[in-house]
Design a protein around this nucleic acid. Sequence first.
DNA 1: TCAAAAGTGTTTCCTGTACACCCATGC
DNA 2: GCATGGGTGTACAGGAAACACTTTTGA
Lengths: 241, 241
Amino acid sequence: MDFRKIDNLSVDCVLLKIENKSLKVLLRKRNLNLFTENLPIVDDWVLPGHYVLKSNNLGETANRVFEELTGEKHLNKNQFRAYGNAARINTETDLLWVRSRGATTRTITVAYYLILASNKKLLNSNGVEWFNIKNLPQLGFDHKKIITDAFDDIKSKINTEPLVFNFMPVKFTLNELQTAFEVLLDTELDNRNFRKKITSKSYIVPLEEKRKGQSKKPSRLYMFSNDVYNQIVETGYIINI
Amino acid sequence: MDFRKIDNLSVDCVLLKIENKSLKVLLRKRNLNLFTENLPIVDDWVLPGHYVLKSNNLGETANRVFEELTGEKHLNKNQFRAYGNAARINTETDLLWVRSRGATTRTITVAYYLILASNKKLLNSNGVEWFNIKNLPQLGFDHKKIITDAFDDIKSKINTEPLVFNFMPVKFTLNELQTAFEVLLDTELDNRNFRKKITSKSYIVPLEEKRKGQSKKPSRLYMFSNDVYNQIVETGYIINI
DNA sequence: TCAAAAGTGTTTCCTGTACACCCATGC
DNA sequence: GCATGGGTGTACAGGAAACACTTTTGA
């Protein structure tokens, strides 16, 4: 195992969840004090990430970042783009930051996103915070673009791949699922039609169990069955262009 | 302009077209003679690609590869994945090849695909050849996987983005378009229903012109209007999972 | 008893799908 | 005049969309 880092290759991780009817992304505080002055001159937010070690795969590097944050191994992360423009690190703050970490200023980053179920808690919230994706703070590097790209990728897949269920706890109500769709598609859906559509799918299985306490009337819980989904493999040759 | 190459970063290019009712990919002959023996020990095929120069962006590098092959500037290339496993270069041939080019054996490659219209010819066919994607020769590195991933990406987008039209000449017949869909979706479509669907789209514009000679009966030509398409922006919230 | 979220059916319209024959031309 | 790919219409079924009230519980 070679623990040295490849000094021009990093992985950035977009951790997403739905909370309060909006999509949240996890950011890490970036802070650097220069001792010549007494002011912090780097004081903004960036995506959690890590340089790739010589012995590590890209995916392993992402896994490690995600595990450190959540305490769990995740299998459903998604690599969606690489960023390697010659001038992608160009502001004074970004250059300073990169040099302070002994990396080259021409760093290529490979970006992953991971969807976290809404009931999961972070293992470690030191220095990180959830932000509404529609209301991001000052971000370093090209991380705003990376977040936008991640969201675009999810949106483009949400209607054809069972990606929504990653936002859901194992057991969820139909209204929770509807909210997830609404947040991701940025639209409103008719509740009756939504229920009809969803309950017609064999891989969304109604459970006997109901959830009490969350609302006045108890609500039926459902689960997504990956097994059943994989059997069905909806070909869906709907030419939709 | 710094012409030195980044010795662990390359770009691989998947150039695709439809010909003879099948999807073709362009490969470059890889050949290396070791002078100690008189036999070529590297003799297989790889994707065209290039190391990234210090002053070049990833996309610029891909553009250059595509331009050298086709003689044209292309705007619709697509970055679809990065490959950077620690052990992705591991066979004796691949290691030999990489060392012979003065690169590191931990090279990250960023992969792009470009769709070429079926009427386009290559500028330069030296050492390259079109292969049916269903019948590939011996490939170096992880290039088989890269090709599969490119195809998967296209398939996943073909029904929701106007990607097919890149396979088409500017003016095309409906039957040509149907063939493209059939090849890409690996299915057969009903001709009458296909025509109904397509002619209902305002951005697929019938021209006065007909094509003679190709078949017995002259066939009407159509064109895809990007302008009209962008105006329409079909939201398409068809939850299809 | 009322506030709050859960849950339920019907009608209309549109779109997908299945299916078989005539058309215009080159040879 | 015939072979070849180009081109057309109709009927049916299933899914999408619009729409308002009842149910169950906690407070």
